[in-house]
């Protein structure tokens, strides 16, 4: 086993090791070929155009344009149809559809703004509720369930509306998507009113069944969420790398060779061969392990001083 390794690592003097550096060209003047292809635009301009395109694309994808004020104005005066039969639990289908379609384009922050805007007008924070909001005074209020901040209570007309609005908010915070006209939109649905009324009246009877359907529904939502998540991740990564939507525009790579001035010499190993360290040399250098003790330590006076210090 040691035979071949010795012969490979300790070559004889005549057999000089082959360097890894490149041989220079015979005439250094022609070594660097000028890039002579005629480009239609200077490089800086091309880069600027690319950057501008990228920014435009990112603005389109990352930063959603803010919801216009008209939407807020309209939604803060909802519901449009009012009557004896209309309530938050039983909204008119037209209003409900319009609300859902508007809210699908909202960010969670904007939904919060909508609630704030409705409260400014004295309406209940839930958009489909025709009733005015509560107007407690003071800072805290004692309820049967505990102590609540009045500011939180005053946002709604009742706890039911708070629950309904929260149901929408949760769907905006953790969105799942459905396809509509070839575009993914956030899936929003109103809280199922019949479920709550049955549960409150007979919690033992229908409990298991509704739970099961609920579970199936949430599983389905999870599945959709997972799929859209991967595509979203991919597009986000593509945008970050800057190669999305521009597959044809590859980056142009020009390889410029480094010019060499003198003929390359291999490392001189004659000294190492004499010392018998040739097998430790790598490209003319001996590898040490950071201490440097191997070479310098022997002739410094540290060695002599240290044992005497210990002896004392």
């Amino acid at each position: 086993m040691s035979g071949p390794s010795v012969s490979a690592q300790a070559p004889t003097g005549s057999q000089t090791p082959k360097g890894i550096l490149k041989k220079p060209k015979s005439t250094p003047g022609t070594s660097a070929p000028p890039p002579s292809e005629p480009t239609p635009l200077p490089l800086e301009q091309q880069i600027a155009i690319q950057q501008a395109k990228l920014l435009l694309q990112q603005r389109g994808e990352d930063i959603k344009p803010p919801v216009s004020l008209d939407f807020f104005e309209r939604l803060s005066q909802f519901p449009v149809t009012r009557g004896a039969s209309i309530s938050a639990a039983n909204p008119s289908t037209k209003d409900a559809r319009e609300f859902i379609e508007a809210v699908q384009g909202f960010l969670p922050r904007e939904y919060q703004d909508l609630i704030e805007e409705r409260n400014c007008l004295g309406n209940c924070g839930y958009t489909l509720c025709p009733r005015p909001r509560r107007k407690y005074t003071g800072e805290f209020k004692i309820l049967s369930s505990g102590i609540a901040k009045v500011a939180d209570l005053n946002m709604w007309c009742s706890d039911d509306c708070a629950r309904r609005a929260l149901f929408i908010k949760v769907q905006l915070d953790n969105p799942s998507y459905i396809k509509r006209d070839g575009q993914l939109v956030v899936r929003i649905e109103l809280d199922d009113e019949s479920k709550h009324s049955t549960r409150r009246q007979a919690p033992k009877n229908g409990g298991a069944k509704t739970d099961e359907s609920e579970l199936a529904k949430s599983m389905e939502r999870l599945e959709i969420d997972k799929k859209t998540q991967t595509t979203r991740d991919k597009t986000a990564l593509a945008v970050e790398r800057g190669d999305a939507r521009r597959p044809a525009q590859q980056v142009e790579v020009t390889i410029r060779e480094k010019s060499t001035t003198a003929p390359v010499k291999g490392p001189d190993q004659s000294q190492a061969v004499q010392d018998g360290e040739a097998h430790l040399m790598l490209e003319g250098h001996k590898t040490t392990f950071g201490t440097g003790k191997d070479d310098a330590g022997s002739d410094s006076d540290d060695d002599e001083y240290l044992p005497s210090a210990i002896r004392l």
Binding site: E73, S76, E117, N119, C120
Partner: peptide, 10 residues
Amino acid sequence: QSSIGIGVMK
């Protein structure tokens, strides 16, 4: 006397 909304501002 309540906080100012879009309508008042407009």
